[in-house]
Design a protein around this nucleic acid. Sequence first.
DNA 1: CAAGGAATCGGACACCGTGTCCGATTCGCT
DNA 2: AGCGAATCGGACACGGTGTCCGATTCCTTG
Lengths: 217, 217
Amino acid sequence: MSRKTPDQLRDVLRDFRRDQVVDVARRLFGERGSTDVSMEEIATEAGVARSTVYVYFANRDELLRACLERMHTQLLDGLAAAWEEGAEPEDRLRTLFEGVFELIDDSPAFFRLAVTTEDAVAVTADAVQRGASPSTPGLAMIGLNIARLIQDLYEEGVAAGRFRPLDPTVATALIGQMLFGAMSIRAGDPAPGPRDEAAAVVCDFVLHGLAGEGVRG
Amino acid sequence: MSRKTPDQLRDVLRDFRRDQVVDVARRLFGERGSTDVSMEEIATEAGVARSTVYVYFANRDELLRACLERMHTQLLDGLAAAWEEGAEPEDRLRTLFEGVFELIDDSPAFFRLAVTTEDAVAVTADAVQRGASPSTPGLAMIGLNIARLIQDLYEEGVAAGRFRPLDPTVATALIGQMLFGAMSIRAGDPAPGPRDEAAAVVCDFVLHGLAGEGVRG
DNA sequence: CAAGGAATCGGACACCGTGTCCGATTCGCT
DNA sequence: AGCGAATCGGACACGGTGTCCGATTCCTTG
């Protein structure tokens, strides 16, 4: 062969090294704020020179984006794994909350990160509607895929006659809001309760709301 | 009198100057991130020397806290103003959302600020239950008062037979989560819809949930 | 008006983190 | 052994923070 190492292999290696750094950065960013942790510290902890980090990431922000993207895929993987278990829309909803909580419990500072880093908050269903191209780079996708998940879930539920027929865009946004709120609060809770319980409670609330059962309708 | 200016007056003056700086800081922090805006800039914009800012605030963090506290009181004032209008629990709930949205629209970066600055996320009702002493300094109060508001609202609703009787702590937390999520999303929405509409939609969701009306119970 | 004190200015300072650069070194491959 | 790529490590400029202090302004009071 003319090339000593195929570009392909070289890239794999490169990704591996990148991941190595991202792992550390994610942990440190998680424990303390995204500020308060220096490049030096990340590099040292990852066992590389500071200058080497800058080979893989143009700057601090890009490293942060990489961390968020990793958490994102981690979340989606986790959700996909448990996704097929229950066929009932209600169960899927609960699964969704449980999966999200699992990620939060694993690295509670997820949100401080996500929120700090601009526009990751686009759990709005508009985004789905506006159909941001799947090639959209970076963080827009982070909430987008979840929004899509929610919208699918909701429409299934309506089709099955389990959910009220609302404007799907609005409904998706509302569920997303609840999800976001629940995540944020759990992320800030120093002593969160059991995951399944918490998910069940939130899920019940999302389904039936606040109003007394006999009161209305 | 022995004193040229009574300490009292001196303090008033001092507060006035402080507010002057906080006003500017809040705006700038709001427009761009809490990072990305230097003390120098704040000072200049406020028409004082950088060193003078450090007379009133020990450091950047303290200035940030002051900004958040100001927003907090602003929010509570706004809510209190419209609080008595509707006696019905449902109306009060809607008023709550509207009031919060109003603040958000006024300075959308409220949340990036609040969330970034640790533990402001304590909208958990546990906090109310644990009864954090009212003297608790700083940001713990920021969500606490709102939580108290929510809890009162909820208990009124239950007493009036309008809300389902749940564990008040849990119910408060859930409403708080929805509120938090709604705020966050609206804060990130580049083109938010009319306030009253948005509030009405969220409110309806909180009241009746997702499930079809005839489906369950 | 003159004197005095408090607040403010403005500029110097040390410190730290970022991002860039480059020569020296190590590592893997042939 | 020899080559090239990756890595090291340490220098650098830059910008922001927080501290300090002498000079200046403003207001009060005698």
